[in-house]
Write a protein that binds this DNA or RNA. Sequence first.
RNA 1: GCUCGGAUGGCGGAACAGGUAUACGCGCACGACUUAAAAUCGUGUCCCGUAAGGGAUGUGGGUUCGAUCCCCACUCCGAGCACCA
Length: 780
Amino acid sequence: MAEKKNQEYNHRLIEKKWQLLWEKKKIFQAKNKGKKFYSLMEFPYPSGDGLHTGHVRGYTAMDIISRKRRMEGFNVLYPIGWDAFGLPTENYAIKTGISPFKVTKTNTDIFRKQFKELGMSFDWSREVNTTDPNYYKWTQWMFLQFLKHDLAYKAKIAINWCPKDKIGLANEEVVDGRCERCGTLVEKRDKEQWLLRITRYADRLDKDLDTIDFQEKIKLQQKNWIGKSVGVEIEFPISNFQFSNKEDTKIKVFTTRPDTIFGATYLVLAPEHKLIQKLKSQIINWDEVLKYINIVKNKSELERTSEGKEKTGVELKGIKGRNPATNQEIPIWIADYVLLSYGTGAIMAVPADDKRDEEFAQKFNLPIVKNYKPAGFEDFGKQVVKFKLRDWIFSRQRYWGEPIPVVHCQRCGIVPLSEKDLPLKLPKIGRYEPTDTGESPLASISNWVNTRCPKCGGRARRETDTMPNWAGSSWYYLAYAMQGISSTLREPISKYQKTLKYWMPVDWYNGGMEHTTLHLLYSRFWNKFLYDIGVVTTSEPYKKRTSHGLILARGGEKMSKSKGNVINPDDIVKTYGADTLRMYEMFMGPFEEAISWNDDNIFGVLRFLERFWRLKEKISKKSKSDQKFEALFHRTIKKVNDDIESMAFNTAISAMMILLKEMERREFVLKKEYEVFLKILSPFAPHITEELWRKLGHKKLIIEEKWPKPDLKKMIDLEVKIVVQINGRVRAECLIETGAKETEVLELARTLPDVNKWLIGKEIKKIIYVPNKLLNLVMV
RNA sequence: GCUCGGAUGGCGGAACAGGUAUACGCGCACGACUUAAAAUCGUGUCCCGUAAGGGAUGUGGGUUCGAUCCCCACUCCGAGCACCA
């Protein structure tokens, strides 16, 4: 009885065993030579909840690809690490008083264990952690390079402020006017902030998308976000006014439709436009103007955009502009539908052509010309390119992030730390709350804050802002390559150049769509900068980018703790095994699309694995299969191969299910064929296939075997089924040798009663023949 | 509002250089094995019709010998952007 039980498929008896053996043999450790393949899935934020089913989907997909590449002879790097700085850990620390260092340690331990239990073929020797001082030393080093090249600067700007998290947010972190993390309404606050000049790279970030293999929807989203538009800057003279400064005699507007200039009947400035203050003395209704400016200033972003888009504005009375095309005097208005941050902060309004201008003109009774004559594109100004992309707000007023390595010296101003003084370590503290003044808790640690200026030796204060959690993830793909040298990141940068050149770019990068305008754009920018200063040799970090769909709870809702509908992958692994979970998540539907979890369907793949396990009993010593089976067999090898490449994992598995059924139906299974089947299944279900491979008596592991190639000649059937249609409707089918000519098929078709009865007394007008597929007889 | 996806059995989904719609899986029904149940295996499973045949891929048109696939109009769902001149 016990003996019999051992022979049944039991994941508990095999999965751990192989995981330990892989680890012991260091089978997944990448070398730094050979034909390389760098596959990457976005590294996780190690939250206290552990891995969720969505993680499993993405990591399994890249694990399948990585395992296949290894069998194809590539030197594969499939690394893993932890993006561990960030708010949830800090908030947890505030709530419990437990140090974020400790929380991070606990959480990464859990994640690591879970990944191992899933059989992920990570190179654990290259594990990185963004909160490790050896790691963030480099994040800080890169910040200093930005600073050195004038790409990091501090400025007082109106930022998005989350009053609950007490933190400034980048534009990319504001969703529908609310904080991306906690959903609180975002306020505007004037604050000194660090910014990175990502806008200097806007054009390259846009253009270079054409050189890389990203999914179209990803490229589109990035293009929309960068928002490149080509237009013309046109100067409208201000009439009836004497200026001391010549520059101030004109209002510069940006338009993508300079051809509509003859229809421009008024000008609009953004309320924050600098010129307004300069024109103050000439504006008759200044009180009214000032009142409007203040109202706009105090409106939140959400209010400004959500008030039904009802247009508001005030005319600047006392001054007029002149349309250079018509030479007519036109009024000048200010209105908040014109944004200071885009173009020149001023527009020429063409109410006949632009919907917003039309609404505004109607509300305030401004003239609308129809039937104006079109102008040439550059007749009244010169062509310029504008972007929607804004500079990246790079500082956060929080504890749990990389300290920004500069000091503020009373005499020298902002002074960067010397590179040899990195890392600037985050001091351990007892309280993690942000201060009410909106400063980081670091500000209250006087023995850390008060320091000496590296330049003059005088008194100085450390910068207390920290970096956003997008910093560490902007270059982690480089860290994996660097990490390989000696398992540390301690060497000077020159030591890493060879290995960086060898590994970069990442060959295949998978991740979530939610990171398209954040992480993906930031890291491309970061890499381009490092390319420009000679640290890396490719200007794009990722050759190919794909994305996985979300996994939703049953019924299509998002999984969430509050709804109690969260599926814990640990439970599935425990009950059914890692191989079953991996295969289920790959089989459940199209990889790129969102899909609902359904426990019932797990049994489908579990049964498949159990049946596969039993198949070994049918192995025979015979040496040849029939041609028909071989055709199916080789077609399956090809399909599994091609489907993995296009991430159509669901149909790859379905093809293997069909093959299994066919092999069960037959009286015997050839050992050769069985082994090939094991190999093509192995990336999906690595444990059971290693076990069965070993049971066949092999000493080597299946992961060390070669990926099978289909025999294209054997894929072709000797006979094919041809569908016979009459007037496009299927009436019969017949078997005929592959590659038969039209006349042969027609001759055979005529003999079929189901065809013949439609032909009686009628004339065939036209014959359409698709070789090996279909014959369509068109009748009168 | 704009941009991009999507809509196929009871359910998840296949089929895309226009060529047998519903592969594969789940569920369900019946049968075999069991004293019995579970498990397993086998058969069936879009709708109407005894059949011949007809109707079905969100809706309505069009192109074509032939349309899930291409074109036009619309409805609904999802994602992204959102006064970007």
